[in-house]
């Protein structure tokens, strides 16, 4: 006669195992995402910028956009942010800060200009910590290769850790299906929860050529915080980028144009395609920052779909003659 305790143990084990098995099936990513639809059950994205921009209004003399030229990348970054009113304008003591550079793959080092300059990223991390930020995390979701390898190859991991920041491997469990009520085409998306919850998001794209988007700049860089990116192309990439930017609104955008990738982007790999521009652009207005960066390629802002559509959605201004721009030589 078998011991009933044995049987109970066995059934308990079996239940646990099948629960785990079922969970495994349930958690399988849907291979082909259906067309996006916003449902009432999804939490709406709280635009990070609107909701949490610190109340301190910059003095009237503060420029909307700062361009710094010459010098080394860290110094360019520090001077640009100082001229914008200092990091304290964006980062309050105790703030939970997420910095989003462009670390799109593990192919090449920073000299190939396919990933954001590590010294620009590290300078911003140091500034945030200096302003009393409680926690500064740096992350991206590379489209090829592992995040660990990409973080290392880009040089960003070493620079960030030396500056006192943390590299975070984006965790698939933290993506949240989020409604995008202001979106025209992209009505919902799986967005990284910590980006939605952060006090401050600082977007640090690198200025790059990009086949389908024309250029990849700040607004495009935010595609790194959602899942199911490829399908956006089929739905109309530019409108989707603009829509996504209604849900995630970084308080500060710093465009790294220390080196610019002029062709074969966004992956790069050819030093002949890299232009040494020694430029950093900083603005609280992500549309304006992208608009100015486009001019560095000799492209009118309105020629880049997502810049134009972003301006139409009221995310910022692409009319560079209408804003106060300060240019500084370092």
């Amino acid at each position: 006669m078998p011991d009933p305790n044995d049987r109970r143990e066995f059934i308990r084990g079996l239940l646990l195992l099948s629960a785990a098995g079922l969970a495994a099936c349930a958690s399988k990513p849907t291979p082909q995402p259906a067309a996006p639809t916003a449902t009432a059950a999804q939490p709406a994205a709280r635009p990070t910028g609107e909701a949490r921009t610190p109340s301190a209004i910059p003095p009237a003399a503060t420029p909307t956009l700062v361009v710094s030229r010459g010098g080394d990348p860290a110094e360019l970054t520090r001077r640009a942010i100082a001229a914008l009113g200092g990091i304290e304008r964006f980062v309050k003591p105790g703030a939970n800060v997420i910095v989003k550079p462009n670390i799109c793959n593990a192919y090449h080092g920073p000299e190939y200009a396919s990933t954001t300059n590590p010294n620009v990223v590290a300078a911003i991390v140091a500034l945030c910590l200096g302003a009393g930020a409680q926690r500064v995390r740096v992350m991206d979701f590379p489209f090829a290769g592992s995040p660990q390898a990409s973080y290392e190859t880009s040089g960003i991991a070493a620079a960030v850790v030396a500056a006192g920041g943390q590299m975070e491997m984006m965790n698939r469990l933290k993506f949240r299906k989020t409604a995008i009520p202001q979106g025209k085409k992209l009505r919902s998306s799986n967005i990284y929860g910590d980006i939605l919850d952060a006090d401050v998001v600082i977007n640090i794209p690198i200025a790059k050529n990009h086949g389908s988007a024309g250029l990849t700049l700040g607004m495009k860089n935010l595609m790194g915080v959602i899942q199911d990116r490829n399908t956006l192309h089929a739905w109309g990439l530019h409108q989707c980028i603009a829509d996504l930017n209604t849900a995630i609104r970084p308080q500060l955008t710093v465009v790294d144009a220390y080196r610019m990738l002029m062709a074969n982007g966004p992956t790069g790999g050819n030093l002949d395609d890299v232009k040494q521009a020694n430029t950093v652009i900083a603005s609280a207005d992500g549309v304006a920052a992208d608009a100015y960066a486009a001019t560095l390629f000799g492209i009118q802002p309105a020629e880049i779909g997502y810049i134009k559509l972003g301006a139409e959605l009221g995310l910022g201004t692409m009319d560079l003659s209408a804003i106060k721009i300060e240019e500084i030589a370092v």
């Binding site: 793959n105 192309h233 966004p266 992956t267 790999g269 395609d273």
Partner: peptide
């Protein structure tokens, strides 16, 4: 839609 071109890793 130019995902293939974007993804192509060649220099």
């Amino acid at each position: 839609c130019l995902v293939c071109e974007e993804m192509c890793p060649l220099p």
